[in-house]
Design a protein around this nucleic acid. Structure first.
Length: 283
DNA sequence: CTCCAGGGCCAGC
DNA sequence: GCTGGCCATGGA
């Protein structure tokens, strides 16, 4: 087990885990405030301790998780830019300044955000857990079992019935078809070389992928920070805090990217997390 | 009972 | 190119 320590001012584990960008996280039953995180077939344990954020993982995965947590980026600069914006962007950024936009496994991100459409986070989490347990391979993390996110081949081997049984509903067809056609519609290294605009176009051509899912894959899988996913929460932010008259979500997304540029993805996540935590507190 | 969730597809304009 | 109806599921 390796322990990596980083300054925690711009690395809050809880906020990074709970802000809605990933679905395979598990609170540790032993260490309060600590989370196991799975990404692809890898796993780590992370928590804040004093002024630091700590990541525990296998030696072979150190570089993977350094990149996963986006550790080479200066989030102080991003938060400073958010402060200049003022208003709700400033407020949200100061609440969520410890959020890191993760560099997630791209295959997992692609499948996961198709699952996410017209769905809520607790249920998405459950579906993805059943997807991994039913189709992924069993792994070991320091004596504790977990399941890797299934490969496209493992998913393609499953019948449509399997996807319905784990609760996917009408999204079962989307997942099944993506699994079957995966190598024809998703070329990771080719996609990584595309401009964001062209990347989105390619993602949009996949059955079951619309503008919002394409933006999420582009942001969370390819770290395209000039992406601004617009879901029901962000639409609410736009209506209530930006006095917006647009109704088309694609146009709302374009508006924010024009306004925030390369900071769009970070600001979006601050706003999403802020709006959603507010709503939950009121209940 | 209805409404909602990190929406997208399809038919009909 | 835009709009409305429809799509499973489960929690509030």
């Amino acid at each position: 087990m390796e322990k990596l320590k980083f300054l925690g001012e711009y690395f809050n584990v809880k906020d990074t885990v709970l802000c809605g960008q990933l679905f395979r996280y598990f609170p540790s039953s032993i260490k309060a405030g600590a989370y196991f995180i799975c990404s692809g077939d890898k796993r780590c344990l992370c928590y804040n301790e004093g002024d630091f954020a700590v990541i525990e993982c296998e030696t072979a995965d150190i570089e993977y998780f350094k990149n996963y947590f986006d550790l080479s980026r200066d989030y102080g600069q991003i938060v400073a830019a958010a402060n200049l914006q003022g208003g709700i962007v400033k407020t949200a950024a100061n609440l969520g300044k410890g959020i890191r936009i993760l560099n997630q496994n791209r295959t997992e991100t692609f499948f996961s955000f198709i699952v996410s459409q017209n769905n809520n986070i607790p249920r998405i989490k459950g579906i993805i857990e059943r997807l991994c347990a039913g189709a992924g391979s069993k792994r070991d993390f320091y004596g504790e079992d977990y399941y890797a996110f299934p490969t496209a081949e493992e998913l393609a081997a499953k019948p449509l019935e399997f996807f319905k049984e784990i609760g996917l509903g009408y999204r079962a067809e989307y997942i099944k078809r993506l699994a079957d056609e995966f190598n024809d519609v998703f070329n990771e290294s080719e996609f990584a070389a595309l401009l964001t605009k062209d990347l989105k176009k390619r993602l949009l051509s996949v059955y079951g992928v619309g503008p919002k899912v394409a933006d999420c894959v582009s942001l969370f899988g390819f770290h395209r920070s000039d992406s601004f996913p617009v879901d029901t929460w962000i639409e609410k932010v736009y209506r209530e805090n930006f006095d917006g008259k647009l109704t088309d979500r694609t146009k709302i997304a374009d508006y924010f990217v024009e306004t925030f540029g390369e900071n769009s993805g970070y600001f979006q996540q601050y706003l999403f997390y802020f709006k959603r935590s507010l709503e939950k507190e009121e209940k």
